[in-house]
Nucleic acid binder design. Sequence first.
DNA 1: CTGGTAAATGCAAGTCATCTGCATTCCAGA
DNA 2: TCTGGAATGCAGATGACTTGCATTTACCAG
Lengths: 138, 138
Amino acid sequence: MPDTIIERLRAGGKKLTKARKALLEILVQSALPMTAAELHVRLRNAKKPMDLVTVYRNLAMLHQLGLVTAVGLHDGQIRYEVRHGRAHHHHIQCRGCGKIVDLMLCPMKKLTSLIEAQTKFAVESHTLEFFGWCPQCR
Amino acid sequence: MPDTIIERLRAGGKKLTKARKALLEILVQSALPMTAAELHVRLRNAKKPMDLVTVYRNLAMLHQLGLVTAVGLHDGQIRYEVRHGRAHHHHIQCRGCGKIVDLMLCPMKKLTSLIEAQTKFAVESHTLEFFGWCPQCR
DNA sequence: CTGGTAAATGCAAGTCATCTGCATTCCAGA
DNA sequence: TCTGGAATGCAGATGACTTGCATTTACCAG
């Protein structure tokens, strides 16, 4: 697990418990964003069971510290992925099987200042997600 | 209420009940996307009370028929807006007070074909929502 | 390396948005 | 007007996520 993550935990006054370390290891290795429920199962399988509530609390804390990104696709669940070492990006999800694929792009930079001028909002973040049919489902 | 909406309801084998008509009238007049709960209150105030469950069922049906768009901001609720007579657009929501403002733009057209080529998905739709601080809250 | 303390955890129970089952009521076409 | 499928309301369930509280644990000071 990257040292940066540990440092930023410490800087936020957080402890690196065994449980938390196991959760972070799974999340760091995951290629795609995961839900709390998925992490709960993976931790159980890895013989490091963690209460589902604790998974939620850890994800909320990691999000607060900016160590993970929340991904809101439209199935009523929130997914999380570690931010460390990954460029800002978006996703596409299949309407049929729910498969998620990373998109390594983001054309929003110029648009943001245009929107700030138009609305007088201070833009903090944005979501950009695509939905469609994957090769197997279409 | 636009005739197109009624026609498309009929074409989908749906009936235009008094209750449904009241719901559509409120939704057509609303400048911003509304949640099921908001519609439930507005219908009650308009002396046309409709059970919250029926609101959900109607919104799901209208979405199925493509008459309304679902807007997923990140507060765990789904908002809906009528599609008729409105160009495809996106939103920005204030992190502080939750205010929502329409953005009359969408730069995604070119990107879509690029993504289709890259992923072999057939892109059906996308969401693009911005979050930040409105003039009053920042 | 040991003890104190704030942070972290697990369990139980609560919220909140949304959905399902079922009996009743209501449109829309014959 | 009659009638069958659609729509509705009510009750209760679901599923994601939160909160309260007592117990355990990591980490720092001594």
